[in-house]
């Protein structure tokens, strides 16, 4: 009889399966609509182009062009974090998905990790294209010694961004509109560190410190997101507001 067999599945199993399942719509299904792919590619390219022109207008040294192209790619990440991560839980609440996640034995942390993981895979592929095409178009050359640390910083920033995306997703549930401003404020340090506005090295910050600063953001944001979510869940049960559909 199924009543007796109804064994509870282990939390770890649920956690891991949730990450994969929640990443699925991002990775696989989102590629179903090619127009999205185009938008995600074209917009960052335009951004990168604009910045390249500014840099060339300033007669900036050629070796910084690599950063500019990278910056364009980061822009793609940033938009993805802000729009698809930050707003996601608000959407999920609006249509009742969040409620169903809450009723299930899974955890919001796993959902967030899946969301971030899926988005990261997607955007990494896209960013690689942007960098490749951008580098070809603008004839950027990288030295092997410069490229590896750059990729390292790139990946770390990516982690920091999505960590922040998780945090934003939770905060958006609390403050809806106001969280956008917070998102703007938080964008600055990441932009700064990822070299979107200008190459940090021009400021004389050593690359090692830069890496450290960026790396530190990953666990910090992940931790904060976890705290925010636990608080969120307990408040939701008390007020009947945050999880339910129409406030």
């Amino acid at each position: 009889m199924s009543a007796i067999q109804h064994a509870e599945r282990s939390p770890l199993r649920i956690f891991l399966k949730t990450i994969v399942a929640r990443a699925y719509p991002r990775v696989v299904a989102a590629n179903r609509h090619k127009s999205w792919l185009f938008l995600d590619m074209a917009l960052p390219m335009v951004g990168a182009l604009a910045m390249v022109l500014v840099y060339q207008g300033l007669h900036a040294p050629r070796q910084y062009l690599g950063f500019v192209v990278m910056g364009g790619a980061m822009l793609a990440f940033w938009q993805n974090v802000l729009w698809t991560m930050g707003a996601q839980f608000s959407w999920d609440r609006g249509n009742g998905t969040l409620e169903l996640m809450a009723v299930s034995p899974t955890s919001f942390e796993a959902v967030l990790l899946g969301m971030a993981g899926g988005a990261m895979i997607m955007t990494t592929v896209r960013a690689a294209f942007i960098i490749l095409i951008g580098s070809l178009v603008f004839n950027v050359t990288y030295t092997a010694g410069g490229l590896l640390p750059a990729i390292g910083v790139f990946l770390l920033t990516l982690g920091a961004l999505y960590g922040m995306g998780m945090l934003l997703a939770s905060l958006f549930l609390f403050y809806s509109r106001e969280a956008w401003h917070l998102g703007d404020a938080l964008q600055e340090p990441v932009n700064f560190l990822s070299g979107l506005y200008f190459p940090v090295k021009a400021l004389g910050i050593p690359a090692g410190t830069e890496t450290l600063l960026v790396a530190a953001q990953v666990p910090i944001f992940a931790l904060l997101a976890g705290v925010a979510l636990r608080y969120l869940e307990s408040r939701a049960r008390k007020d009947g507001k945050l999880v339910t559909r129409w406030e």
Binding site: R9, S10, R13, I14, K17, T18, V20, A21, R22, Y24, P25, A29, A30, R32, H33, T97, L100, M101, S104, P105, T106, V111
Partner: peptide, 18 residues
């Protein structure tokens, strides 16, 4: 999620239950 097909969507929720 609108991008998902019916089977995919159901599978996704089934995973939330492990």
């Amino acid at each position: 999620y609108g991008v998902l097909k019916v089977r995919e969507q159901l599978w996704m929720f089934s995973q939330f239950y492990g």
